[in-house]
């Protein structure tokens, strides 16, 4: 699709994407961090953060977006989110012998309806958000770089990504 000289979409799309990417990312982070006080949470915020990178990929072509968040880094972030979630759960065992114990003291020191008021729930939201964002971006980039082409009379799956030297 993007075989011409300038990868990505037209100048208008690129300019608007350049302005909006920070705001979309910030909104996703806000949704993640305030998930226990207002509608949202790790799932919705993670998908919004992933859609920032999807917008970058669609507007500027995949090289630039992969430069910002590579596939290897995305898979590492995916594992990091899952491990962070499990670590929080296991800390509950270490604290009070219950898996997923909410071991941080609630509503201290600021009282309810504040950012630090819900024990482990914001931490879990951050872990889930990192995991969902990384995995959805990874699946998008995989589906975007792969296409079916005719090679020597047979259809082959080819990738347009440059292979890294190992």
């Amino acid at each position: 699709m993007n075989q011409n000289k300038q990868p990505g979409m037209s100048l208008i799309v690129q300019t608007v994407a350049r302005w909006l990417k920070g705001f979309i990312f910030l909104y996703g982070v806000y949704i993640i961090f305030y998930g226990h006080l207002s509608p949202g949470g790790g799932f919705a915020g993670g998908v919004i953060v992933a859609s920032t990178f999807v917008l970058l990929t669609l507007a500027f072509g995949k090289e630039r977006s992969l430069g910002k968040l590579g596939k290897l880094l995305a898979s590492e972030l995916d594992s990091l989110g899952a491990l962070m979630f499990l670590l929080i759960a296991v800390l509950g065992i270490a604290w009070g012998r219950i898996f997923f114990l909410n071991f941080i003291e609630k509503a201290v020191p600021t009282g309810n309806f504040k950012l630090f008021s819900a024990g482990i729930i914001p931490l879990c939201n951050v872990a889930i958000g990192i995991k969902v964002a990384a995995s959805l971006f990874m699946i998008f980039i995989i589906l975007a770089v792969i296409r079916v082409q005719e090679v020597k009379g047979r259809r082959r799956l080819v990738t347009t990504e440059k292979r890294r030297k190992e």
């Binding site: 949470g41 799932f43 995989i142 589906l143 792969i146 259809r155």
Partner: peptide
């Protein structure tokens, strides 16, 4: 339902991957 929606996206991507593989095999 909140967890089920995000799982639905994962399942959708899995199905699309299988469809692309089938297209590569059968055209």
């Amino acid at each position: 339902v909140l967890t089920s929606i995000v799982i639905g996206l994962g399942i959708l991507s899995l199905m699309v991957a299988i469809a692309i593989r089938l297209y590569e095999r059968y055209g």
